[in-house]
Write a protein that binds this DNA or RNA. Sequence first.
DNA 1: AAGTGGTCTAGACCACTGC
DNA 2: CAGTGGTCTAGACCACTTT
Lengths: 230, 230
Amino acid sequence: MKGTSWRAVQDELVARISAGTWPPGALLPAEAALAAEFGCARTTVNRAMRGLAERGLVDRKRRAGTRVARHPPARATLTIPVIRAEVEGQGASWSHRLLSRAAAPAAEEVAARLGLPEGAPMLHLTALHLADAAPFLHEDRWINLAALPEAEEVDFTAQSPNEWLLAHVPYTTGDIALSASAATGATARHLAAPEGTPLFTLDRATWNGPAPVTQVRLSYAPGYRLLATL
Amino acid sequence: MKGTSWRAVQDELVARISAGTWPPGALLPAEAALAAEFGCARTTVNRAMRGLAERGLVDRKRRAGTRVARHPPARATLTIPVIRAEVEGQGASWSHRLLSRAAAPAAEEVAARLGLPEGAPMLHLTALHLADAAPFLHEDRWINLAALPEAEEVDFTAQSPNEWLLAHVPYTTGDIALSASAATGATARHLAAPEGTPLFTLDRATWNGPAPVTQVRLSYAPGYRLLATL
DNA sequence: AAGTGGTCTAGACCACTGC
DNA sequence: CAGTGGTCTAGACCACTTT
């Protein structure tokens, strides 16, 4: 091991774990002991081990010490791109068409997902995103008007709902579900996919702090693949 | 803001960004200035801001300072569970059946994905994982025998390929592609899904350092959803 | 009760990069 | 070249949990 940077320490720990010096389930020496061995401050060892814990390679508990994880989960970081950026990143030109727009009471499943009362006032939008004039994905979105009354006045034919929301409510939390579903009805028609074609589908619910903001289903045109790195 | 823990500092920074005190693209005060304002050590501010940078909420560059990100990417951390743990986590009992096993030269697309010469010696396995005796997913795996010659001797009827590899080559890197595909042939039959049924599909290629180890396609039974949190 | 990780401090030097 | 973040140190106290 060269140097005493936290990266060097981390690399050394990873090397020992990979080599089986500390097999899965084994207890690692305490931070103070490793600091003494490596000739660095405990803080530095802490920094290195914290990184390993975030990656799921080790489990750390006070008093109980640090153990090599038995079943290191495969953790992949998915970066869900802004649709426009994703299309343009492939060298295609992006455009979108607003298909429908209506103020409507929340449908049962939408209300349930967002934790709103059924029938709460919402704005229901559907849009088609295109890459070089070919259908790229179908967007089916519900916006909570209680949280975003301004949405009612926006002209979504000029700016896609996706982009307006990003600009308007930038920092949010939420959850995502990925699945495969069969193309049906309007979605199938707009994506030019026969009924029943498997579509990659992303459902996302978004909150701004405690306030439910929006729920969207993105149905990608056939053949789409979402890539991630471990 | 109460206390001067790095979490309190981080919360305060997030609050100001959300409130628009520092709009997207704005330059934040330097760490030293914020430390003075909050009455804490610069290290503490650094800890808080590092977290925000990891989440993609701000961009940091030496000399240039810290800026609020203009297009906060939606970054979701997917935790791809060990199959057995995933099934048992749902309260079902897990089992698996080895469907086929053959030493075979690498198929063209497998070789291409892993960067192996076509026809390299590999072990081809297919298996079915069950949850309470119902089909859960179909596994189609290729193992690089040059990297893992021991695999040739292993009895995969007792231990699933998935688990053997985890125990044997625990700490790896790789990439993942998620897609929707139509059930066909043996996969459809084993999952008890009619031909053409949309299946959620995960393709994963795995390396141990520079050495290609394995490539696998997991086809989940109809209805499966992969969940992630932003 | 005691040992372990979690965090905070005050200070220092370094690396990078925009001016 | 000067200002900013990146990192390291040595020391301290605290929180939690197992013994």
